[in-house]
């Protein structure tokens, strides 16, 4: 099955190096790395994984192979940003995953970082959140700022 990116109920904003995607149906925000964005934008259902690897190489000028693309597709799928695509998780052995990560210079940077858009009530002062809905935790590597301790106020 050739990968097809999901485009419905999404709003995307291009930044110089990344793409921010808001999922209106799930109230999540994703930050796609340059690599993930290049792959996601090219997944029109007609291109193979090898085609995508070539596209990434051409667009970014950095080496990308099949494993690297599969890894990115897996991340995009986890973020609910794909309609269809290859079943990737079992296909990539851990050594291949490490190779792919290294090739894509991703050792310290996530392909897709995600947060949950909190309901407004989650921003109420502590102890006064009423019953308007609750805060939802964060996902991905962008850890949130809640729960800090040690300093008072604010």
């Amino acid at each position: 099955m050739r990968p097809l990116a999901r485009k419905s109920d999404l709003f995307a904003e291009n930044l110089p190096e990344e793409v921010i995607v808001y999922d209106k149906s799930r109230d999540k925000v994703h930050c796609l790395s340059k690599t993930a964005a290049a792959i996601w934008e090219s997944c029109d259902g007609t291109k193979s994984v090898d085609d995508l690897a070539q596209i990434v190489e051409a667009k970014l000028g950095a080496p990308a192979d099949r494993e690297a693309v599969l890894l990115a597709l897996e991340e995009l799928k986890k973020a609910d940003l794909m309609e269809a695509g290859p079943v990737t998780a079992p296909d990539i052995a851990s050594s291949s995953r490490r190779d792919a990560m290294a090739k894509m210079a991703l050792a310290s940077s996530a392909l897709v970082a995600t947060i949950v858009a909190s309901a407004p009530a989650a921003h109420a002062s502590a102890g006064h959140q009423g019953n308007q809905g609750g805060s939802q935790g964060n996902q991905g590597d962008q850890g949130g700022n809640q729960g800090n301790q040690g300093n008072q106020g604010g």
């Binding site: 921003h123 109420a124 700022n145 809640q146 729960g147 800090n148 300093n151 106020g153 604010g154």
Partner: peptide, 13 residues
Amino acid sequence: IPGRSLSGKSTLV
């Protein structure tokens, strides 16, 4: 300095 209630924003400010 983004942060929710009790994150220490006021003290930092």
